[in-house]
Amino acid sequence: MTVQVQPDREAALANGRAFLIARVRDSNLAGEAFFGGHAQAIAACAATMADHFFTGATLLVFGSGPHATDAQHNAVEFVHPVLPGCRALPALSLTNDMATVTGLLQTDAAADVYAHQLRILGRPGDIALALAHAPVHPSISRGLEAGRAAGMLTVALTSGDESVEREHVDYVFHAQGSDRAAAHELHLATYHMLWELVHIVLNHRGIRAVS
């Protein structure tokens, strides 16, 4: 056994409880700081995304490791809206196609795993959304560059010690210095908010669900 079960149950619980309280306090403080600093930009980004959807954009989302799950979460969020009355909007996760992803990984074009899909699947006016924790892998930077070069709106949700090169990205939401798991929680809340605000703007413009 490598797991040591603390025989003193009260001490074990107190120890665990102290960890949880500190961790949740850190999470909540990080949330206050992050959204305090980014609320305006989140609203502006959502309004711009709504303009793009209004003219037929598809949202293309990519990220690696835990962020691959965010790409899928964004796709289901937009394609299958949780609130009645919201229109289904086009969104694709670039992490889903295992044949393509693993195929590209075993070629010299591994760092183009997202850039390739953006170039071939994307159209001008689409939205490229990347999620990444530092150090930012070249596949993420190249994806954003490819999106920009193809005439897309580019958005990045990043965290850790460094973000992406801002010259290729229209909106960057960066959680500085946070640990990966806590920052991931901020990213989830951020794209939930982007989704909701996109629909508020589209509603404002008269776009509702097709019956």
Partner: peptide
Amino acid sequence: QPAAGDDLVLELARAPLEKS
């Protein structure tokens, strides 16, 4: 129909704070 104006964006910016 108008695109989202500055007033709407200001209004929307309250949402992230409330939801967080």
